[in-house]
């Protein structure tokens, strides 16, 4: 269990893009909340971390892994959204002096959820091991470009989708999309933003014509077309069946246990997330 953090095994999924695949579990003391896909991109002059990890230990392991690959300075730590499994490792990078980057809504989301997440994670990992949030100083409202030295990354702030603060990264050199939790593969997606908004952002991302993507959860690298198709199908089933339930006057508690069940075999942890997704969808769609 807890010991000195060790460098984790990362896969170089494209030249200079190193990804640590998260385990398909919820946070436990044993997994140190290392459940999301996190990693880094190496340019000529500097490194960008794209998601610092789910806990202080997770972040420190990533830092050690970076130092096994390169001694270049870590210039940016990009935080893809508010969820703890992606960002509680941030403090492990502070001594490196990077610029922390996030969606323009991220500071507000950290304020709203920060102490709630901190308590929840400390309950699971213990007080010293949870890590803490670092408020980004470089905020993205629409789109910005950062340069790691002959390696430009396009960072896009999305309207409310998976959450209200999703930031995606495209590496212009390899044309690989680091989608954060805008893309779930194999693991049941969780909706904490807006179902319809998420579907429309998937359409927008599709227009980028990237061939490969790093999902927030699932394999370290996937073919964009296949992966986005599965997610769109699930979200569309959820949208259509929840709307139909509301139209028929089916109560929310009944919808939560009946909507989306045809998708059950397609996603790990389905029973832990689908019912909650239905409630989230229902409470918004009933106002349509």
């Amino acid at each position: 269990m807890a010991g000195a953090p060790t460098a984790v095994r990362l896969a170089e999924v494209a030249p200079g893009i190193h990804i640590r695949q998260g385990v398909t579990e919820d946070a436990t003391a044993a997994n140190s909340d290392a459940i999301a896909n996190i990693g880094f991109i190496v340019g000529r002059d500097a490194v960008a971390v794209v998601d610092p990890g789910g806990s202080f230990d997770d972040g420190q392991s990533l830092l050690l892994a970076i130092r096994q690959v390169t001694e270049l300075p870590i210039r940016y730590v990009v935080q893809s959204h508010v969820h703890p499994d992606h960002v509680f490792g941030a403090a492990a990078f502070q001594a490196e002096g990077p610029v922390f980057v996030g969606h323009a809504n991220l500071p507000q989301a950290f304020e709203a959820r920060g102490s709630y997440y901190q308590q929840g994670l400390e309950k699971i990992l213990g007080v010293g091991r949870a890590g803490r949030l670092v408020t980004p100083s470089l905020l993205v409202r629409d789109q910005i470009e950062i340069d790691l030295g002959e390696r430009r990354l396009t960072l896009t702030a999305h309207p409310t989708a998976h959450t209200n603060c999703d930031l995606s990264v495209v590496d212009r050199w390899t044309n690989v999309l680091l989608a954060g939790d805008l893309l779930f593969v194999d693991r049941a997606p969780s909706i904490d933003g807006d179902l319809r908004g998420w579907l429309s952002q998937l359409t927008a991302l599709d227009a980028l014509k990237v061939r490969a993507a790093v999902p927030g959860h699932g394999p370290a690298l996937v073919k964009w077309q296949d992966a986005v198709g599965n997610l769109q199908r699930y979200l569309t089933v959820l949208l259509n069946e929840t709307r139909a339930a509301i139209d028929r006057g089916m109560p929310i508690e009944e919808a939560a246990t009946t909507v989306g069940l045809s998708e059950r075999g397609n996603w790990a942890l389905f029973d832990d997330y689908n019912g909650r997704n239905v409630i989230e969808a229902y409470r918004r769609l009933e106002w349509e």
Binding site: D26, Q108, Q119, K123
Partner: peptide, 12 residues
């Protein structure tokens, strides 16, 4: 209650 207490909303 799974995962502890109710998360504050992210609404603007």
């Amino acid at each position: 209650v799974s995962g502890g207490c109710s998360a504050p909303g992210l609404g603007n």
